[in-house]
Amino acid sequence: MHRTLHPLTSLCFILFFFVIALFGAPTTQMVGVMILLSAASSIRKRKQAWKKIALYILPIGILLFLVNSAFGAPFSRGLAYALRFVLLITPLVIVLLGGSPTDFRLGLRTVPIPSRLHYLFIFSFEIIQSLRDVFQAVYIGQQLRGYNANRSLGNKWKNIFPLLLPVMLIAISQGLDRSLAFEFKGIESPAEKIYLRTLTLSPFDKLSIAILLLSSLGLIVASFILP
């Protein structure tokens, strides 16, 4: 199934399982978990997805089940908590590992939000990387000036805080320079943007979105009508 999904399809996928978690009956939720597990097996990074599910999601789900079924509480209550947790978290893992940042970025362009907002969104991920690089440089620089990193963990943490101030100052200064550079890149240009590459909604995406939205709506309605 290694199909490039539009981010809107991915969002609807997450929304669908969110609705199952909150409005679905236990049997529906179990079916939802089965669908999720089969989806996890069909993505490109399936090994990583299974690793994350086995190491983080399942242990926490089991823990939730045990805690909520303890002390005479009904078995169904623990199961409901565990299923909800799995249904809320696993779709995020599948979407993150199943798509690529490029698809996401290209897809965002077709969503009718101001371009500034989606640059801000993508740039916020970039800035974390930049801050890490700056921190690394400051850290090495301070080590060369005598900062001893090989102390106890407590001391290490205590000594890290003075390094944060230069990192923040450098980040602010770089932010100002970047804002000037962005101005010449036309970020404020009133002209209608024309992109070199875009990711449009394919018929598969449109069909998937329609099915996922209708199913979500059906589940919500059914949860109110059915006893």
Binding site: S115, F184, A191
Partner: peptide, 27 residues
């Protein structure tokens, strides 16, 4: 600008897209 690394948009994933970035903004 003096520091070229700060001049890159940071939101593109290829050299080609980086060159296209400002052209895209100006339509």
């Amino acid at each position: 600008f003096q520091d070229a690394s700060l001049q890159l948009s940071g939101v593109t994933e290829t050299v080609e897209e980086e060159i296209a970035f400002s052209l895209e903004q100006f339509g």
